[in-house]
Amino acid sequence: MRWQVGPEPDDVYWVAADVGWLTFPIQAVIGGLANGMTIVCYEGAFDTPTNERFYQSASATG
């Protein structure tokens, strides 16, 4: 993950993978935390309850 993403200090890492897929625990949880990053996890559809949900989630990280 370090060479793939190139994390820098104070980065917030968001993996766009369902938490049930193997990509999520390997890339986000293990990879992100092993490199000292803050990670954002979201389960569910980004258009529920409204189409603004994605932007609300993204703005809450910064």
Rank of each mutant, 00 (worst) to 15 (best):
M1H: 02
M1W: 02
M1Q: 01
M1D: 00
M1P: 02
R2P: 01
W3N: 12
W3L: 07
Q4S: 12
Q4P: 03
Q4N: 10
V5T: 01
G6H: 00
P7I: 04
P7Y: 08
P7D: 04
P7V: 05
E8K: 15
E8Y: 07
D10P: 00
V12A: 13
Y13N: 01
W14H: 06
W14N: 05
V15C: 10
V15K: 00
A16G: 04
A16T: 09
A17F: 04
V19E: 04
V19N: 01
G20E: 03
G20Y: 03
T23E: 09
F24K: 03
P25T: 15
P25G: 15
P25E: 14
P25K: 15
I26F: 15
A28Y: 05
V29Y: 09
I30F: 15
I30K: 15
G31A: 03
G31W: 00
G31K: 00
L33P: 04
L33C: 04
A34G: 14
N35W: 01
N35H: 08
N35M: 05
G36V: 01
G36P: 05
G36E: 05
I39H: 00
C41F: 02
E43S: 08
G44N: 01
A45P: 03
F46I: 07
T50S: 11
T50Y: 02
T50R: 04
E52W: 08
E52N: 09
R53H: 01
F54N: 05
Y55S: 12
Y55M: 09
S57L: 14
A58N: 07
S59K: 11
A60M: 10
A60H: 11
T61E: 11
G62S: 13
G62Q: 13
G62H: 12
